[in-house]
Design a protein around this nucleic acid. Structure first.
Lengths: 241, 241
DNA sequence: TCCGCCGTAAATGTATACATCACGTGCAAA
DNA sequence: TTTGCACGTGATGTATACATTTACGGCGGA
């Protein structure tokens, strides 16, 4: 199993997660073990295992008398969740500033910033690479907080596709606007780290909150476009309503 | 099953949760399905089901190659988690103030406050009843936020025994100090609702944060006592270190 | 001595048969 | 017509046998 093979549970987990995230299985749908087992050509046992893991990821919720239901996310939930990420990352930044960070921690953050800089200097930005670096920077920020509980909750929120710090980036169709967005985001990144290094806790918290707010504006802009243009928004495929 | 009977899964869930919370199974312990199944006199299937639910509750974490490990909570984690509850409840209070609450919502909060008042007027306070009402008030507050995501995260954090709004109340040994604590808490409750009703979002957020801070002080006080006096702290039984 | 291979044991992964529960449906009686 | 019960269907709950994986230790050879 250390080779390319996956366990049936893992395969079921991947397939079901994919189907939920891309909207193939809409919110509110009740998932039946037998049907899924037949569909995936496996027995009920690994299906159950996969379902319970998806419940841990907050993509499913347990129904009344057993069973699982796909969670519904309305537009308001998306906005609230992004704001919640801002609150949590703001708290992480504040903790980092208040409690102080190690030289290595700060160096890790600076390194991430420099790598993003290097990427943004290019003519055309490799969005996959940017997403990875951006996600990494946010992970470092959560680490700098020094709070395991907080880091875990940030990871949890961030696992939702529309609340990820790198959500919606590939959905941009106007490249000039995207370039400006990325440049502004990077400026905020740098300011947050600067505030942390300078022990300016209030500024660090406010900046991190505002940084998430930019992501929120991005969503609201994308959703304000014509219906046709919204079709391909991969991060929002699981929305209901 | 709607009668007094529980499924084996439910029984296993209750017993395991209890053992983790009271420290019978210390943090870091790996749980083996076969051993637990023999211990509980059931098969592995319901044991697995119970374990995955405990993982959802954040009491267990999944090990590397499958399997579950009891989560370890250090003192610093407890304090951080209580503060995080303050941050989240503060956000809930701020949202409620910013967005406004319905008349019914406000009435529900006032009703909870009055019931707590009535309880506190008595000579000796029924702590179980107080805990229930206090928990209910905090649930109402989370509701007033109008954010499903936020409410869910508050519920999640609050499910940890040491981060519950009613944690440590029964652990108090000095009754006069306890009475003062409860009175002060109720004053904060009232101020929070007053701020929400008056749309004072900044005040509402700060008050809710400070309200959790009082819980944090309470923990720190209890833990500063002699070792002998700390033995019975039921909410802290699962601490490691 | 050290490295690597193989075998064994103990763990999780999986399939399947059966038990039990929940809910709807239809019939019968008031 | 309405109410309530009985029953069937389809779902989850449970036990168990077997498969597969992994970790570890001993043994052999370099």
């Amino acid at each position: 199993m250390s080779d390319g093979t996956l366990t049936h549970t893992q395969r079921a987990l991947l397939e079901l997660r994919q189907k939920i995230l891309n909207g193939s299985i809409p919110g509110g749908t009740r998932l039946y073990e037998v049907a899924l087992a037949e569909d995936l050509q496996i027995s009920r046992t690994p299906v159950r295992a996969a379902l319970s893991q998806l419940a841990e990821e907050a993509l499913l919720e347990r129904g009344k008398g057993g069973g699982f239901v796909v969670r519904s996310f309305a537009l308001a939930d998306v906005v609230d969740t992004i704001d919640l990420r801002g609150v949590l990352e703001g708290t992480a930044a504040r903790y980092a500033a208040e409690r102080g960070v190690s030289a290595e921690g700060l160096a890790g953050a600076e390194k991430a910033l420099l790598e993003i800089d290097r990427l943004l200097q290019r003519e055309t930005v490799d969005m996959d690479a940017y997403s990875a670096l951006n996600t990494q920077f946010h992970a470092v920020l959560a680490d700098l907080s020094g709070s395991i509980t907080l880091k875990r909750e940030i990871e949890r929120i961030t696992a939702l596709p529309f609340a990820s710090p790198s959500a919606f980036l590939e959905d941009h169709n106007r490249l000039d606007a995207l370039a400006r967005t990325l440049g502004a985001a990077q400026a905020q990144h740098r300011a947050i780290i600067e505030a942390i290094a300078g022990r300016e806790s209030g500024r660090a918290e406010a900046l991190a909150r505002e940084h998430a707010r930019a992501a929120r504006r991005n969503v609201e802009f994308l959703l304000s476009q014509e219906t046709v243009l919204r079709e391909g928004l991969s991060s929002l495929a699981l929305l209901t309503g």
